[in-house]
Design a binder for these strands. Structure first.
Length: 487
RNA sequence: GGCGCCAUCGUCUAGGGGCCCAGGACGCCGCCCUUUCAAGGCGGAGAUCGCGGGUUCGAAUCCCGCUGGCGCUACCA
């Protein structure tokens, strides 16, 4: 069997991490079996439609490196890949179901539906459609009312009143539901658009989808879908209800938990490779110990039966750690390019553009193991680029010299003398300053801190002597003298 | 209210009757390394496997009940 999976998001806003995780599983499954991964846009809800969302959807997949074989922007043999352009198919399916006696027109007004539900809720009855239009008599009356008011109708599925429906879920196993608890759900809305239930089934069939992965909030709807498959004579695809991604408080991941959009993570400086790795590991694992897994290995080893059933809380801390791992493991050329691009965005306008690639290439090895997020890069190395340093005398003196600024001043003066004539290399600088500390009977660390702030304007920096070496003799001495002048 | 899903360290997870008085990772704590901060190394705390029954010589693992969390119950997906 050809494995064909799809990611079928609704263009209603910014792509959500939870959806993307499911998309990732779809992608991995398709690639694992050498099949196809399809992108389909489910824009059947005109009230929530956001014209800007499509681009976001596309961009999020591109950023994560999840490539699809068929989709709205690239076409494919089963297009169009946008549901609003496939209305005829849903309408035909609905018509066929009516003809078969598996569905019927419902002319009830939403006001009546609301009233019915309100009454049911009040009397502690399960709220659901009372099936007025399921009977010819009721339907005639409702239709007359509707036509008098100029309203249209919906098409509802005629759910059998008794019996069970069962289906096999690839993750949960066999599931059985009593039909008596279901109602006659809407398949086609009065605006002629289908609901999800009809639309996805018609499209999956048309697009030869073999596996459906979706959030487990769909489980309660699955029996309806089985009914439609049966009525339409369609062999259901493999269905896998995957656990959802939750916020730290155990509720649905949402805005108030922080970033839910990939773009926010991208902007904070997470690497797509890290997000990919992390996301693939929420709800799935390779074994009992492997955390860092390449895309190729995910594809090689991915399988539905290692997806867990329970929901997962999104753990940004672990993502952040993982991002650091990916930064540390990145090839140097790529690292330089990544850092440079980020610096280009983060460094103040006063720094000349383009950012000096050679300089970044020299700095990158010094800071790579300190950086967990790209957003931290500038903070670690802006002093290499900036001209004027801003720091307070307190910062300069630190704990060691706060009580004796004069000693600090003379120490810096001696430092200038000690290093000015020597060779300007890491080793030479360190040797001179260590000797000086000895000579002054000052702790090496204290002297280094003093020089560090003078040279970089910060108390926390990349390794001092390497930094000074990169800074160069002129700029470094100039900064030390500026520090002396402050004291 | 009805229907359903889920349940192992704070979090992500391994485990599928004896290998588990439960392994790994993040985070946390300590030590080492060390010019700051990291990274790295070593070590530690942290889970009576939600609770109660049952099956079994033996249960985190199988069964039942309960509890809890979550979801669905729309002309949203």
């Amino acid at each position: 069997m050809d494995v064909r999976t799809r990611y079928a998001p609704s263009p209603t806003g910014v792509p959500h991490l939870g959806n993307l995780r499911t998309a990732l599983f779809d992608y991995l499954l398709a690639r694992h079996f050498g099949g196809q991964f399809i992108l389909r846009i489910e824009d059947t809800d005109r009230t929530r439609y956001d014209p800007n969302a499509l681009q976001g959807l596309l961009d999020s997949l591109t950023w994560l490196g999840i490539d699809y074989d068929e989709g709205p922007d690239i076409g494919g043999p089963f297009g169009p890949y946008v549901q609003s352009e496939r209305l005829a198919g849903y309408q035909a399916a609905a018509a066929r179901l009516i003809e078969q006696g598996d569905a019927y027109e419902c002319w009830c007004s939403s006001e009546r539906l609301d009233a019915v539900r309100a009454e049911q809720t009040r009397t502690k009855q399960p709220p659901r459609y009372d099936r007025r239009c399921r009977e010819p008599q009721g339907q005639r009356e409702a239709r007359a009312e509707a036509e008098a008011e100029g309203r249209g109708h919906v098409v509802r599925f005629k759910t059998p009143l008794t019996g069970d429906v069962s289906f096999q879920d690839a993750i949960h196993g066999e599931m059985t539901f009593a039909l008596a608890t279901l109602d006659d759900f809407v398949m086609l809305k009065s605006d002629g658009y289908p609901t999800y239930h009809l639309a996805y089934i018609v499209d999956d069939e048309a697009m030869r989808i073999s596996h459906v992965l979706r959030g487990d909030e769909w489980i309660p709807s699955a029996p309806r879908h089985m009914l439609i498959y049966r009525a339409l004579g369609i062999e259901p695809p493999v269905i896998a209800h995957v656990p959802r991604v939750l916020g730290p408080d155990g509720s649905k991941l949402s805005k108030r938990h922080g970033a839910t959009s990939v773009f926010e993570y991208r902007d904070q400086g997470f690497l797509p490779e890290a997000v990919f790795n992390f996301l693939a590991l929420v709800g799935w694992s390779l074994d009992d110990k492997t955390e860092i897994i390449s895309r190729a290995d995910f594809i090689e080893h991915f399988s539905l039966d290692r997806i867990v059933k329970n929901p997962a809380v999104f753990n940004v801390e672990k993502l952040t750690w993982m991002n650091g791992v990916y930064i540390r493991d990145m090839p140097e050329a790529q690292l330089t390019e990544t850092f440079a691009a980020r610096l280009d965005a983060d460094l103040p306008a006063s720094v000349a553009r383009p950012i000096d690639r050679d300089l970044v290439a020299r700095i990158a090895p010094l800071i790579r193991e300190r950086v967990k997020l790209l957003s931290e890069v500038a903070g670690y190395c802006d002093f290499f680029f900036a001209e004027g340093l801003t720091y307070s005398t307190d910062e300069l003196l630190g704990k060691a010299f706060t009580a004796r600024p004069d000693d600090a001043k003379s120490a810096l003066e001696s430092a200038v003398i000690a290093i000015d004539g020597g060779t300007w290399t890491h080793d030479a600088l360190e040797a001179s300053l260590r000797a000086l500390a000895d000579e002054l009977s000052v702790k090496a660390g204290d002297l280094f801190s003093l020089v560090r702030v003078a040279a970089t304007g910060k108390r926390v920096t990349p390794p001092l002597f390497e930094s000074m070496a990169i800074l160069g003799r002129e700029r470094c001495l100039e900064r030390l003298r500026a520090a002396i002048a402050k004291l």
